[in-house]
Every structure is written in structure tokens, then in C-alpha cells.
Simulated scan of single mutants.
Amino acid sequence: MPVSPDITSPMLSAPLRAELRRDVLRGLGSPQKWLPPKWLYDATGSELFEQITVLPDYYPFPAERALLESCSGAIAEASGARTLIELGSGASEKSRLLLNALRARQLGTAYVPVDVSSSALSQAADALRAEYPGLTVAPVLADFTADLELPPVEGPRLVAFLGGTFGNLLPAERAVFLRTLRSQLAPSDGLLLGCDLIKDPAVIRAAYDDPTGVTGAFSKNVLTVLNREFDGDFDLAAFDHAVLWDSHNQWIEMRLRSRHRQTVTLRGLGLAVTFAAGEDLRTEISAKFEPDRLAAEVRAAGLEISRLWTEPTHHYGLALISPAHDRAVDAVRPRLGEDVG
């Protein structure tokens, strides 16, 4: 699930509303209607996502946490990081596992959470300062998906991008993200990337389409956001939650499917949008990766996977990535469960 903007207040700030306006006009005006997944997360959406993370079939959250619990020591040892930078930090829950491992090795003197939610940053920073005396906590309020800029802090730096958020980006967006990050990494810096791996599509679909309807309510919540922000008249009951596995692109899509022909008005935008019966509005993609494919994307950006950890089911992975050296990296082809380098 993606990093979210700070939309917990009843109404968006002017800059965020302008950003949402651009996304709505682009996405709802496209032949295949879509909206960026970050707009799913107002206070209600964030609460619904917390419920999703504890559903029996939602494997990404517990799988990544289990990996961090078992591998944080090896990650700390391999990275030697003095500063941990976390993109989309939220409550910084999983970062504590990394901080504990780094500080146990007299590392981890600074933590830089990067998020677009000022309230989440403030709360997490206060809590971490209290929990870790002597730790420098320097929060950065920014949308790294739009403008990634690493702070000039003490290195080596380890950039953590967890939660499978990398898979919410389209391939072109992933390429831009990796190239931009590579241009700012020093030779001793690294990237810790949480990545959902290819598996039985039935397992993937179950994680995004629970029988209790929580995921459907989460997906529909974007319509509530549009109604609130732009005086809209979306009828949530007129849309069904639908999940599609795209085997060609190797990603899951969450969609809202119109139950009948209808026209929705967003009065605040002066916009009327017509949906045909059965027409879909895509609210999220979540790409799943084969190790070779992930290594190729990383390599194309001038980076290389040095180590890849997976949990016993091979459902999820943590990749430690570094700037590529002059030597050929084509031979670096990590396999499931294998450490490389």
C-alpha cells in the first residue's frame, strides 16, 4: 500500500486539493479511468488499512515484519549505516527493528523519517526521541514520489523503502524513482527495498479481496474523499469492489466497477463523469516481482542487489541494494532465499 498525503483533516489544504484536482481531471478523463492510490488514505481509509493488515489472508505486512525481525542484524552489519532514512515512514513501526539492530552495533546515530503527513511525522519523531536517547531524529515533510531529495546527513546512509510501496508505482515511475535515487547515493550508501514476490495468483487475489469486505470499503473510500473535497455525488453502493490479476504486467489491480450506467457530478470541479454499466475505475496497482526482473530494473538504474532475503514461503522479500561498481553486474542474479555478493 502506498505512502499517503496528510488528508486526515476534514478538508484538504489548498496545495493538496490542487494536486488532487490535477489527478482527478487526468485520471477520470482517461479512457481507462484511474486514481492514484495515495488518495485512499484519509482518516477513515487509514483506519481501514490498519484493519486490512491483520486480516488472515493479507500476507505482506506480517511477512515483511517477520523478515525484519530475523534479518535486521544482517542488514545492519552489511549496510554499516550511521543514518537510516525511511521513505513513507508513517508511524515508523518497522524502522524500530532496524534502529535496534544498528544501535546494537554502535551505528544508527540518526533517523530521518520522510512522509507527507505532518501529524504522523510529529508523533513518530516525539516517540522515537523518547525511546532512543541520543538518537538524532530529523523528520522531513515531503512527497518523495513527486520530488525525491535525500538529505545531506552523515553516511553511510541506508534508505528504507518498505511496505511493498515500490510495487504501487508503474514501471516508468519505478525507473524514474530508482534513477533519481541512484544520482544521490554515495558509494557507501544503500537502499533496503521491500518487495512482494510472484506466487500463486489465488494467494495474491485473496490478500486484496477479503470476504468481510474491509478491502472493498477501503477502495471505495476514495469516492468519499472526492465527494467531500469537490461536492460530489458518488453513490458508493453503485460500485462493486473488483480485483484483477494481470499476468502480463505481473500486478494486481483494485478496481471499482459501476453497477449500472450512471453520471457522477463533482460540482466543485464543474465536472460530470459518465460510467457505463460494468466500467471500471482503477484505484491501485500492486506489482509482484521475480528476482531476475527486479534485478534487471535495479541494474538499469545503475544499482545492484547485493543481498536478497525471503521468508520461508517465498511470498515476500527484502533486497539490499547498492550503487553498481565498475565490475559487470549481469552475473548478479539473486534467487529466492539466497544471499548474493
Rank of each mutant, 00 (worst) to 15 (best):
L236E: 14
G164H: 10
D126C: 02
A186Q: 15
N227P: 06
V176E: 07
G164M: 09
L148I: 01
E154C: 08
C195L: 15
S183F: 10
V176H: 04
V214D: 11
A237D: 15
T224E: 09
P133G: 06
F144Q: 00
L178M: 01
P139S: 06
A160F: 11
L162G: 07
R205T: 14
D235R: 12
A237N: 13
P201G: 03
D143N: 13
L192S: 01
L135E: 13
Y132T: 04
E131S: 09
G155D: 10
P187T: 05
R182A: 14
F234I: 00
H241E: 03
V137W: 13
L170T: 11
V222N: 00
F239C: 04
L244H: 06
T180S: 13
A175F: 07
D209R: 13
D240V: 09
I204K: 03
L226D: 00
A138H: 10
D200N: 11
A138W: 13
N227S: 02
L185F: 11
A202R: 11
A238D: 14
S119A: 12
D147L: 09
R182N: 09
T165S: 15
R228E: 10
V203T: 14
L223M: 14
N168S: 09
L192T: 00
L244D: 07
S188L: 12
F239V: 05
L148M: 04
P152C: 07
G163Q: 10
R174Y: 08
L121V: 00
D147F: 05
G163A: 08
D233C: 03
A172M: 02
I204T: 10
G190A: 15
G190N: 05
A125Q: 00
F239P: 06
P156M: 03
V222A: 00
S183I: 03
T136H: 14
P151R: 04
L141C: 01
L150Q: 09
P187V: 07
F177C: 01
L236W: 05
Y132A: 08
V137D: 10
A207R: 14
P133T: 11
R157W: 10
L226A: 02
L158N: 02
G213N: 08
T145L: 13
T212Q: 14
L121G: 00
L128Y: 14
